[in-house]
Amino acid sequence: MIENIGFSELLMVGLVALLVIGPERLPKVARLLGFWIAKTRNIVASVKEEIKEEFHAEEIRQMLKEQAGSLEDLQGVLDEMDSSAHNLKTSFDKRAQQIEQSIKSPHEK
């Protein structure tokens, strides 16, 4: 904003201010104007930093949501594997009982 103002424009503003305000009050007004410009810049910088932090926090929240979805998917896969392992164990147990029965049956006769 202020970076686009050249030396000639600043000189013009200074001359107009000197004519309007007067030479005795110009230094005080210039200091006051400088103070408020600095304060405004600090406020703008502070607001920019807060906005930047909020965007960063939102990015982190989004990443956590995505990771939570991935964890839910992983939990689903683990549940399926657990169910498959249980079914496989049940199948092995049944087969083992059948083998035991077939071994015992000829001896009992």
Rank of each mutant, 00 (worst) to 15 (best):
L19P: 00
I51P: 01
I60Y: 05
V77I: 11
L10C: 07
E50I: 06
A38H: 03
E9W: 00
K28M: 00
G69D: 14
R25A: 13
A85K: 10
A30T: 10
V16Q: 06
S8K: 10
S8Y: 08
I37V: 09
D82S: 15
H86T: 14
S91V: 07
A38E: 03
L18Q: 08
A30G: 00
V16F: 02
P27L: 12
E50F: 07
D93I: 00
H56E: 14
K52C: 03
G34Q: 02
I37P: 00
A96F: 09
V13E: 03
L26E: 05
H56Y: 03
M81A: 10
R31E: 13
A17D: 03
V29E: 15
S70M: 08
F35Y: 14
F35G: 00
F7I: 13
K52T: 05
N87V: 06
S105T: 15
F7N: 12
V47R: 09
D93W: 00
E9H: 03
N87F: 07
F35R: 09
Q75M: 06
F7L: 08
E54T: 10
R61P: 01
E50L: 07
V47T: 06
R25N: 07
I51H: 10
H107I: 12
E108T: 13
L19H: 08
V20M: 03
L78K: 01
G76L: 11
G34E: 04
T40Q: 10
E80T: 09
I103K: 13
A57W: 02
K48H: 13
V77S: 08
L88Q: 13
Q62N: 14
L78D: 01
L15C: 05
G69M: 03
A45Q: 11
K65M: 07
E72N: 03
K104R: 08
G69V: 02
N87E: 15
V47Y: 11
F35C: 02
F7D: 02
V20N: 04
S8E: 15
H107Y: 14
P23M: 07
R41P: 00
E108Q: 13
K48L: 12
F92N: 15
N42C: 03
L10P: 00
E58N: 04
L10I: 05
E53N: 11
S84G: 00
M12C: 03
F35P: 03
A17F: 02
E49F: 04
N42L: 12
L32S: 06
L78F: 08
E100L: 10
K94V: 13
H107G: 08
I37N: 05
N87C: 04
A38L: 06
L32G: 01
A68P: 00
A68C: 02
E59F: 09
K65C: 02
V16P: 00
E54V: 06
A68Y: 10
V29M: 14
P106H: 09
Q97W: 12
T40H: 08
E9T: 00
L88D: 09
H56G: 02
P106Q: 11
S91L: 12
A68T: 14
K89C: 06
D93C: 01
V29R: 14
Q62Y: 11
S46Q: 12
L88E: 13
E80G: 14
S102T: 12
L64W: 07
F92Y: 15
E108P: 01
V20D: 06
K104Q: 14
T90F: 10
G22S: 05
L33A: 14
L33S: 13
